[in-house]
């Protein structure tokens, strides 16, 4: 009998997604695949130029769309076989996890999508780092909060100025 393969210590992280999640994913991917095929079909064929139509721009993405749709059908059928139709998957992570994720995502989008390009880059970066650090360290409690906020401000200013100096002055790159 052969020795079993070494087990990953991160089984929890590598645990399969719930069948319900797989089923929803399969449905989304199937629609996506069909949409790609439809778009590819509507692309010009350039038969006059090539003579054969074999260089039509839609051939390759159309093929990918077909494969994505077919594979997503297999994924969906497997999810149904595993009970995805009947069993509702539990929501992943705790409410605190989801709140932290939402905070990080919102701050990231506000910074990269809203501030960068409108506010001087060093200032936008300083404000972002300060807001991000303060938001996540706020829940550590009132003890030492003022010190943490001051440190966050210093880290923010240091990052903003440091990034500007290193990228713009040392490596001569253009910043947003």
């Amino acid at each position: 009998m052969s020795e079993p393969d070494a087990a990953s210590p991160f089984e929890g992280e590598k645990a399969p997604a719930s069948p319900r999640a797989d089923l929803v994913t399969a449905a989304v991917l199937c629609v996506f695949g069909i949409a790609v095929v439809t778009q590819a079909w509507q692309m010009p064929r350039f038969v006059e130029q090539s003579g054969t139509g074999l260089t039509a721009p839609g051939i390759v993405p159309g093929f990918y769309g077909v494969v994505i749709a077919l594979l997503s059908i297999v994924l969906g059928m497997r999810a149904i076989r595993r009970g995805g139709w009947a069993v509702r998957g539990a929501a992943q992570g705790s409410a605190a996890d989801r709140r932290q994720l939402a905070t990080a995502a919102v701050l990231g989008v506000v910074y990269a999508g809203g501030m960068v390009g409108r506010v001087p880059f060093w200032l936008a970066s300083a404000l972002f780092v300060f807001a991000f650090t303060t938001a996540f360290e706020w829940e550590l409690g009132p003890q030492g909060r003022l010190r943490r906020v001051i440190e966050a401000a210093l880290i923010g200013i240091g990052t903003g100025i440091g990034v500007m100096l290193v990228f713009e002055k040392l490596f001569l790159l253009r910043l947003p």
Partner: peptide
């Protein structure tokens, strides 16, 4: 403290 700095570097 580390991740926002990483995010700034990603943007650059």
């Amino acid at each position: 403290r580390l991740m926002p700095v990483v995010f700034v570097l990603c943007t650059v």
